[in-house]
Simulated assay, not measured.
Amino acid sequence: MQPYMTYAEIPCVKPESTQEKSVAIPELSAERPLNVDEPSEVLQKVQLESIASSSEIRDALKDENLQKLILGIDGSPDAETELDKAMGTEVFRIFTDKIRSAIGP
């Protein structure tokens, strides 16, 4: 068994239906810098692998409402505000709880 996974080996979630779904992905007008105030907040590789291999998280990502929330956060010029709004929804809170559970304490 390999001690780590390459990016190409991280599994992806595909729609269950045989019909292709088209999702409009907003284009970013400018790249955002990735600033981290606390280096301890950056996930370790083993934590990312736990998230990628979790069937609970993969199943949750099949929810179209959750997909829209994540795309909205990712495509927003003010991602922190969008993240705060998403945390007000049950589907996103459940999703983040599953992530926290997967990465451990």
Rank of each mutant, 00 (worst) to 15 (best):
Q67F: 02
K62W: 02
T81L: 15
D78A: 13
R93G: 09
A86G: 04
P33S: 15
M1H: 12
P11F: 03
P15V: 03
E31F: 13
P33M: 13
K68E: 06
Q67E: 02
A102S: 07
V46H: 10
Q44M: 14
M1P: 06
L69E: 02
K85W: 01
L43P: 00
L28G: 11
M1S: 14
R58E: 00
V23C: 04
L66R: 03
P39R: 07
Q67S: 06
E82Q: 14
D59A: 10
D63G: 03
E38N: 15
P105G: 15
Y4M: 15
A30F: 05
N65I: 06
R93T: 10
K98D: 01
V23W: 04
E90A: 13
E31R: 14
E80R: 14
S55W: 00
K21N: 05
L34Y: 11
T18C: 10
E41S: 15
S76M: 08
T89E: 12
F95S: 02
S55T: 07
Q47H: 10
D84H: 07
G88H: 07
R58M: 03
P26N: 07
P15Y: 01
E80Q: 12
D78S: 14
S40Q: 12
L43W: 05
D37A: 13
E27P: 05
A52G: 04
M5Q: 08
Y4D: 10
M87V: 05
L83M: 12
